[in-house]
Design a protein around this nucleic acid. Structure first.
Lengths: 235, 235
DNA sequence: TTCCGCTTGTTCACGTGCTCACAAGCACGG
DNA sequence: CCGTGCTTGTGAGCACGTGAACAAGCGGAA
């Protein structure tokens, strides 16, 4: 399907805040598709995704004019366009570095493959675990990373090592050609500007919750709503 | 130690973006404490935490004037004040709902207790797993949640169930008196405004990485750095 | 005491993101 | 064909977060 030349706004830069919401919209569309309705309004999509309708419309407008006024958005078509934009038309192979508690769980977690991110390899530095098999994948030594990346066509690296090893693992991943890294280790990583880095720190999330709970207990103040998606719509 | 009455800016509301960075600063301070230096400059703290010095100073100023011009911040004192502000002077007991792959891993993950969030209870709906023991904790049935919360003095709930069960589990947690929830299920939860909700969606993080990688491959454009907190930061 | 170097705390200007409000535009009925 | 109802797409104003720049202020040296 060629680009419809209606508007030239296509392919312009999409705000970071919008990008972080696109996956939520996509998930909501999948839900909506189950209802059998051919189209969906921005208001309904807002309900499903936990944002407000105006934000939904503005976000979707960055992708192009895929809606029909008076009707809504074609569910299937929007789903396709969004998948394409997010690069989900192909699978992205993932390597997990560090097969401790967390790495082990991630390797067994089915949610990745389901959503197009199959775990294709596991690496670790401990000779004790190298060679063991998890969920059908044999753990290899981290020294073999460049070979593993090439063989398995890896694009994304997940760091699930202790904090002390994280930076070195990141460096090795980058050397091996990986340009997208998801870091679970509770430490700050430094990467070149052409590498995308995101981090998930479980303890930090709990500490943020702790802050607001503390405030609520201490003050008589009631403002404690957190952030994105899901904060209470009192309805 | 009573509040110094120098400035009345104490106890003012702290921006959400700043709150999400406080745990990072605190972690950096712990690192810095290992160096033995009694004080730390905003520049050094910026280096350790991955932000810039101006942001660090502004963030810290929300907590009060705890620095000394020409010298820096007293590491130990700042650490104490920040812990107090984050509510980390006491342990917060956590219950994990859903003992599947992820819940199991979280229960075994030592990082929580270490940082003041001991996992005090596990609940599940599956009679098959109720009664089994994980990391010294016996899994109880989710119907017992109110009793569990009372007995173990639980303040924070972690949802590690399938998406389909997440909303009901959240409702039950709130009924049981929990006011802080961390959601790992890939779905939008609705909670009353007096409940804090944060979410971690692993697949979403990968999809965001996928977006930037896709862009880099497709376009000749090289802008892809991320580094949000949790929204997100985001961060 | 006075001067000097250093680092904080704060102010200001800017950019990004969010919300509101409404014109544009499509489908459908008469 | 034309009017009506409904929903998108977008422009403008506003709130929030960020970065640079600088005055305020502390400690130490002379």
């Amino acid at each position: 399907m060629a680009d419809s030349p209606k508007r030239q706004a296509r392919r312009r830069k999409i705000p970071e805040a919008t990008v972080s919401r696109l996956p939520i919209y996509l998930r909501s569309l999948l839900e909506a598709a189950g209802d059998g309705l051919p189209t969906i309004s921005s208001e309904r999509l807002a309900e499903l995704s936990g944002f407000n309708a105006a934000k939904v419309r503005k976000d979707l407008s960055y992708l192009g004019s895929y809606g029909t006024r008076g009707v809504g958005y074609d569910v299937e078509y929007l789903q396709f366009q969004m998948s394409r934009e997010l690069g989900l038309t192909k699978d992205w192979h993932v390597v997990i570095a560090g097969v401790g508690n967390l790495g082990h769980a991630l390797a067994n977690y089915g949610g990745f493959s389901e959503r197009g991110f199959p775990v294709a390899a596991l690496v670790d530095a401990d000779p004790e675990v190298v060679g063991t098999e998890i969920n059908g994948i044999v753990v290899r030594h981290i020294d073999e990373l460049p070979a593993v990346v090439a063989e398995e066509d890896i694009s994304i690296g997940i760091i699930a090592t202790p904090a002390s090893a994280a930076q070195e693992v990141a460096d090795r991943m980058i050397d091996a050609g990986i340009r997208s890294i998801l870091n679970f280790a509770p430490t700050i990583l430094t990467v070149p500007p052409d590498v995308s880095l995101r981090k998930v720190d479980l303890a930090v999330e709990l500490q943020i919750l702790s802050f607001y709970q503390q405030r609520r207990s201490g003050d008589g103040d009631g403002s404690a709503s957190s952030e994105s998606a899901g904060s209470g719509r009192g309805g």
